[in-house]
Computed example of a mutant assay.
Amino acid sequence: MTTTIKHEHFKTRHRHLDVSVDVQHCHIPDDERTRLQEDLARLGDELLEFPESHLRLSIVYHPNQEEYHAQAWLKLPEKRFVAGRYSPWLDYSLMRCFAKLRRHVESYKEEASLPANGSSTARPAINGAFVPSTEHVLDALDKAVQWQDYRLFRRGLAGYEDWLRAHVASWVGRYPQMTRQLGETIDIDDIVEEVFLMAFEQFPQRPKEPTLSDWLSKLIDPALKTVWHNPDERENVDFARTFGTGSELLDAAHAAARRSKPK
């Protein structure tokens, strides 16, 4: 019979990263502890350029919902980030939580490296983001859709991601209730990914006018409402972002479904 640990707290340090971990209502298996230490070490390496950083990680199992909730708060000099993920599977919850944190860190480092008076040929959008000035990616996107290759489609839209993320963040502000849930049950990246998934599905029917960026903008509100009202879609979005679509996504979903839940 497995004994459930009601509460566990431990601290560790990786490079310049101080880590505090709280575990409630679950036991972390040895293999998962090893993966957790690897994730922390990887994050510590990515934060090496900062003189100090602090991470608080909370892992809670909710027996009524049969879900884990991994949530992390990262403090850097002059910047704070939060990332979280609910999932029936502990390893998946932690994996997505750390993936979101790394995306936040990567974006922050990229922004910090931009020249103060740098120039760009793109036209400015909102919140300092830029809209790509050309639509040269259409042929590549069309081929990706014909081949049913979401990863290729996603790479073709990489130049729109920062602009779209800023646009989504601004749009979420229209829904105060959703804004309060950011970093908890939903994430800006989830909505961005849902926009790309909708674009992938609807691309053959895309109107020739307006521009690609204007068309993506019109997908934000339906994508936002889909993620907000359909928790299952959040998992689909995460699987798509992590594994792709088609047979890769199906295999990943089947593998996840075979994992056991705590007794």
Rank of each mutant, 00 (worst) to 15 (best):
P29F: 13
K6P: 05
H14P: 00
V19L: 13
V19T: 08
L48G: 00
K6V: 13
D45I: 00
H27E: 11
H25S: 09
S20T: 12
L48V: 02
R13H: 09
H16N: 15
S58E: 07
R15T: 07
L40C: 05
H54F: 04
D30L: 12
C26A: 04
P51D: 04
E49R: 12
P51Y: 00
H27Y: 00
F50K: 01
R15E: 10
E8M: 12
F50S: 13
L36D: 06
H62W: 03
D31S: 15
D45K: 09
T4K: 03
S58V: 03
L55G: 02
H27L: 11
R15V: 02
E49A: 14
L17W: 11
D22Q: 11
D31T: 15
Q24K: 10
P51S: 03
H9E: 14
S20F: 14
E32C: 12
G44A: 09
H62G: 00
S53I: 00
E8F: 00
T34N: 11
L55V: 10
D18G: 02
T4C: 06
E32V: 15
C26Q: 01
V60T: 01
T4Y: 09
D30E: 11
H7D: 14
I59V: 13
K6N: 10
R42L: 12
E8Q: 15
K11C: 03
E49F: 03
H25T: 03
T34D: 10
Q24L: 13
K6F: 05
E46N: 05
V60C: 05
V60L: 06
S58I: 02
A41Y: 01
S53D: 02
E52N: 09
L40E: 06
D22H: 11
V21H: 06
R33Q: 15
P29R: 06
V19Q: 09
C26V: 05
Q24R: 11
I28L: 11
V21L: 06
R33V: 02
L40I: 09
L40K: 07
E49P: 00
A41K: 08
E38D: 12
F50P: 12
Q37P: 00
D31L: 15
A41Q: 13
R35W: 07
E49D: 15
P63Q: 06
K11S: 10
F10E: 14
L43F: 07
S58C: 03
A41D: 13
D39G: 05
E8P: 07
T34A: 10
V60E: 13
K6A: 14
S53E: 02
R56N: 11
P29T: 05
D18Y: 04
V19C: 14
L17S: 07
D18M: 11
Q24P: 00
R56W: 15
E46S: 14
Y61V: 06
D18C: 07
H54A: 01
V60R: 06
I28P: 01
E52V: 10
E38P: 03
H7F: 15
V19I: 12
L36Q: 12
L57M: 08
L40Q: 06
H54W: 05
E46D: 15
R56D: 14
I28Q: 01
H54G: 02
R33D: 08
F50Q: 03
I59T: 01
E52A: 12
P51Q: 02
H14F: 14
L43S: 08
H9A: 06
D45A: 11
T34Y: 04
